[in-house]
C-alpha cells in the first residue's frame, strides 16, 4: 500500500508538471501587452514601462521565464497578483477552504442520495417509481448549474425572501443560522448534478449486480429483501461507484467554482473569474495549479477507497 501510494504520488508530480507547462504557455499566448496588465493602468512612462518589463523578465525567452516561474513555484512563491498587489498565495489560502468546503458538502450529499435513488430505481425496475427517478435524474443531469442557481435565487430569495441570495460567511463570523441559510442554495445547486450522476451510475451498477448469481444465492438462503439488498446488492454495486468518485469530485469542484459566481461566494471560482477578467496572470496560473493538485489527490483517494470496498483488489499489483 505504501509503495503504491508513493508510485501514485510520483505520477501525480508528472501530471502537475505537465499542467504547469500548459498553463504557463497558454497564458503566455494571451494577446495584449501584459506590462499594462501588471501595471494596472495605461498611462505608463517609458521608464515605468521598462522597469515592469524587466521585472517580468519579458526580455528573456519564454522558456527561461518558465524556468524562473517554476523555480519560484518550488520555493513556494506563486507570484504576485497584478491586480491586488499581494502574494497570490495569501489571497488563495483564504479562498481554497471555501471552495473545498462547498465541494465536499455537495459530494457528501450527492453520494448517499444518488446511491439511494439509484438503488430504489434498480430494485423497482420498470415500475413507475423507476421511470420518475430516471426521468428526473436525466433532466437534472443536463440542466446547467448556473441556471439552476438563478432559478433557485429567483424563487427563494426574490419572490419569497426565504433565503439570502448572496453573502457567504463562515459560522465563526456570521453565526450558524446565517451560515446555513447562505449555503443551502449553492450546495443544492452543486449537488444536484452530482445526485443525478450518481443516481444514473448506481442504477446501472445495481442492475448489473441484481442479475448476478450470488444475489440468487442470497435469496435461496432465505434472506429478507432488505438483507439481500443491503448486504449483497449495495455493497457490490458500490464498487463501480467508487471508481467514478474521483472524476465526479473534479466535476463538482469545477461546478462549485461556477456556482460561486452566481451566489457571490468568495472562493476560488469567484477569484478565477475576476482574475480572468483582469488578465491577472499569476492568479490564473495558481488557481489552475491548485485545482489540478486537488483533482489528482481525489483520484488517489478513489484508488485507496477502492481497496477498502473490493477485497479482490490489492494495490501492490498482485490483484487476482
Amino acid at each position: 500500500m505504501g509503495k503504491y501510494l508513493l508510485k501514485r504520488l510520483g505520477q501525480m508530480v508528472i501530471v502537475v508538471f505537465v499542467v504547469t507547462l500548459l498553463t504557463f504557455f497558454l497564458v503566455d499566448m494571451v494577446p495584449g501587452d501584459i506590462v499594462y496588465n501588471a501595471a494596472g493602468r495605461d498611462d505608463l512612462t517609458q521608464e515605468e514601462y521598462d522597469q515592469i518589463y524587466y521585472e517580468l523578465n519579458l526580455d528573456k525567452s519564454t522558456a527561461s521565464r518558465y524556468v524562473i516561474w517554476l523555480k519560484n513555484l518550488l520555493s513556494g512563491n506563486l507570484g504576485y497578483s497584478y491586480v491586488y498587489r499581494r502574494p497570490v498565495w495569501d489571497m488563495l489560502k483564504e479562498k481554497i477552504p471555501t471552495t473545498l468546503y462547498l465541494s465536499f458538502l455537495a459530494m457528501l450529499i450527492s453520494v448517499p442520495l444518488g446511491v439511494l435513488f439509484g438503488s430504489i430505481s434498480a430494485i423497482r425496475r420498470k415500475k413507475p417509481s423507476d421511470t420518475i427517478i430516471t426521468l428526473i435524474a436525466n433532466i437534472c443531469n443536463c440542466l446547467p448549474q448556473f441556471w439552476i442557481g438563478i432559478m433557485l435565487m429567483l424563487f427563494f430569495s426574490f419572490r419569497h425572501n426565504w433565503l439570502p441570495s448572496v453573502g457567504f460567511g463562515w459560522p465563526a463570523r456570521v453565526g450558524w443560522e446565517r451560515h446555513i441559510k447562505t449555503i443551502i442554495m449553492p450546495v443544492i445547486c452543486v449537488a444536484l448534478g452530482g445526485i443525478a450522476g450518481f443516481t444514473r451510475q448506481s442504477r446501472s451498477a445495481m442492475l448489473e449486480v441484481i442479475r448476478q448469481d450470488y444475489i440468487r444465492t442470497a435469496r435461496s438462503k432465505g434472506l429478507s429483501n432488505a438483507a439481500v439488498n443491503m448486504k449483497h446488492m449495495v455493497r457490490n454495486g458500490l464498487i463501480p461507484i467508487v471508481t467514478i468518485l474521483g472524476s465526479r469530485l473534479a466535476r463538482i469542484l469545477s461546478g462549485s467554482m461556477i456556482v460561486e459566481n452566481v451566489f457571490s461566494i468568495p472562493g476560488m471560482g469567484l477569484m478565477a473569474m475576476t482574475s480572468i477578467n483582469n488578465k491577472d496572470i499569476p492568479a490564473i496560473q495558481a488557481i489552475v495549479l491548485i485545482s489540478t493538485i486537488v483533482a489528482c489527490l481525489a483520484f488517489i483517494l478513489t484508488d485507496v477507497l477502492y481497496v477498502l470496498v473490493d477485497p479482490r483488489i490489492s494495490l501492490d499489483g498482485s490483484a487476482d
Partner: peptide
C-alpha cells in the same frame, strides 16, 4: 416462505465462481 427457503430446502447452484458474494 423464507423459513422454508434456505431453512428447510437448500439449493446449490451451477457456477461456483459466481455464486458466492465476492466482497464478503
Amino acid at each position: 416462505m423464507r423459513d422454508v427457503r434456505g431453512g428447510r430446502i437448500g439449493m446449490i447452484f451451477q457456477e461456483p465462481m459466481t455464486s458466492l458474494n465476492p466482497v464478503m
